[in-house]
Design a binder for these strands. Structure first.
Lengths: 141, 141
DNA sequence: ATAGTTGCAAAAGTTTTGCATTGTA
DNA sequence: TACAATGCAAAACTTTTGCAACTAT
């Protein structure tokens, strides 16, 4: 395949993760990683793909998002029942969640200190610590 | 209605929340609040109700759990995509989540200190701060 | 050929809604 | 009788799975 320019970065990422650079994956990788840090739902990604004229099913979007997550290219963040957000920022960080508009904002973990969490049983280890600061605007509905 | 003993506490709770003490709600309230702090999914509650010989649909279980939550009797906790836990402990607290078995353990907020979270825009207020310490056992699958 | 991958239709879950029924005054 | 509240079947979502088609040797 001739690596045509606009997809060079996406291609590089897929290669690094040992994922075959298929049409769908290339398009999704470009969509996701060319625009800085993003927090997206599968539904959103599917919509954007359609808008960009890329033919891909929602199932494939889910599968691809999970593959990217397993490959360490994304993080899954659960803030609301029945809705997963996928985060292109994979550095250690927390979130502010604006309940009225559904927006997520990153907070670098380095700037937050947490004390007093319990020790875990022997043989158990910390996968991750999620802090979600939920914010609402009393004015806006 | 004659308040037969085993349901007295449940009845009291429903009254305090201005919810009609129907057969279904009484049974669910008893199930949920008679056993100390609990973290349950709608599916679990439905199963327990069936086991106890209470006829109630899953939709009613969901609706009831949400009513209880709105009334401040429970808290909804989101730890996994596509699965809500409902917590009978409504005091300010955080959670340890054991990924292998799906168990949630409470951590009183008073024993945890968090510093460095960003200030919110004017007109915005904090609804709640959720801390979830995710734990896994490398041995167990 | 053949062994492994991919993308998606269909299936499986989870949650919400609309409305007939029930309860209350 | 009227009026609101209830419970659930059915609908609407979100997510996963099974497998035909495709790739790369």
């Amino acid at each position: 395949m001739t690596p045509n320019r606009p997809y060079a970065a996406a291609l590089e990422r897929l290669r690094a993760a040992s994922l075959r650079p298929t049409r769908q994956r290339l398009a999704l990788a470009k969509l996701l990683f060319d625009g800085g840090d993003r927090h997206v739902t599968a539904e959103q990604v599917h919509g954007e793909a359609e808008d960009a004229g890329i033919s891909v099913s929602l199932a494939t979007v889910y599968n691809t998002l999970h593959q990217f997550t397993r490959a360490g290219m994304m993080r899954e963040v659960v803030v609301e029942a029945g809705r997963s957000y996928f985060d292109t920022n994979v550095s250690d960080h927390h979130h502010v969640f604006f309940e009225s508009c559904g927006r997520l904002v990153d907070v670098p973990a380095a700037q937050v200190q947490i004390h007093g969490l319990p020790d875990l049983p022997a043989g158990t280890e910390v996968t991750r610590i999620d802090v979600i600061l939920r914010a609402s605007s009393p004015n806006a509905k």
